[in-house]
Amino acid sequence: MNDATNLDKDAASMDPEQGLIAVRALRVLADRLEEVHVRNARTQGWSWQAIADVLKVSRQAVHQKHFRD
């Protein structure tokens, strides 16, 4: 993944390859942040429904994505 210094440059690039690289890096970052904050919310006692409501997805979707046996 690109570092933060290059990410803003890549995101603004007129080169489609660089732009798409930035999109992928942002998706990876967003997924990692979501995982951290869902885990934090569950540790603090949040229900799957409460998390889903904040993320604007179904309870089933968030549970399926983040539930670990």
Rank of each mutant, 00 (worst) to 15 (best):
N2I: 14
D3W: 06
A25C: 09
I51V: 03
R27P: 15
E35H: 07
V28T: 08
A12Y: 02
E34G: 10
A22T: 04
D53F: 03
D15A: 02
Q64H: 15
R68L: 07
Q49Y: 01
V38C: 00
A41N: 09
V62A: 00
D8R: 13
R68T: 09
L29F: 12
D69Q: 13
L7W: 08
Q49L: 07
A25R: 03
M14V: 14
V38L: 04
Q64E: 15
L55C: 10
W48N: 00
R24P: 01
L33M: 10
E17W: 15
N6V: 01
S13Y: 04
A41H: 03
A4N: 13
R32N: 11
T43Y: 14
A30Y: 14
H63Q: 06
D3Q: 06
L26P: 10
H66G: 10
S58L: 03
R24Q: 07
E17V: 11
N2A: 12
N40W: 09
R42S: 00
V23W: 02
M14S: 13
A11K: 02
P16F: 03
L26W: 14
W46V: 07
A12P: 08
Q18R: 08
N6P: 14
L20G: 01
V23L: 04
R59E: 08
D53M: 04
P16I: 01
H66W: 13
M14T: 12
T43G: 08
Q18T: 09
N2R: 01
M1K: 10
R59D: 06
S47W: 03
L7P: 13
S13H: 07
Q60A: 02
I51A: 04
H66F: 12
L26H: 08
M1W: 08
N6T: 06
R39H: 01
D15C: 05
K9C: 09
A4K: 10
R32K: 14
L55Y: 06
V23R: 07
R42L: 05
N40D: 08
K56C: 13
Q64N: 15
A25W: 06
A22E: 00
N40G: 10
D3I: 04
S13D: 05
L7C: 09
E34H: 12
T43Q: 14
G45W: 02
I51R: 00
R42I: 00
D15P: 08
A50V: 04
D8Q: 15
K65T: 03
G45K: 02
A12S: 10
S13A: 02
R42P: 03
R68S: 09
D15F: 05
A25H: 05
R59Q: 05
L29A: 15
R59P: 07
K56G: 15
V57A: 02
Q60H: 06
I51F: 03
A12E: 10
A52K: 07
R32L: 10
L20F: 07
E35Q: 09
A12F: 07
E34I: 07
V28I: 13
T5R: 11
A52H: 05
R42T: 04
G45M: 01
W46R: 00
Q44K: 13
L7D: 00
N6R: 03
Q64L: 14
S13M: 01
L26N: 13
N2P: 15
A4Y: 14
H37G: 11
N6L: 05
V23S: 03
D15N: 06
R59W: 07
L33Y: 04
A52C: 02
D31T: 07
T43I: 14
W46C: 02
N40A: 10
E34R: 11
I51L: 05
Q44D: 11
Q44M: 13
L33D: 01
D53R: 00
R42Q: 01
L33F: 04
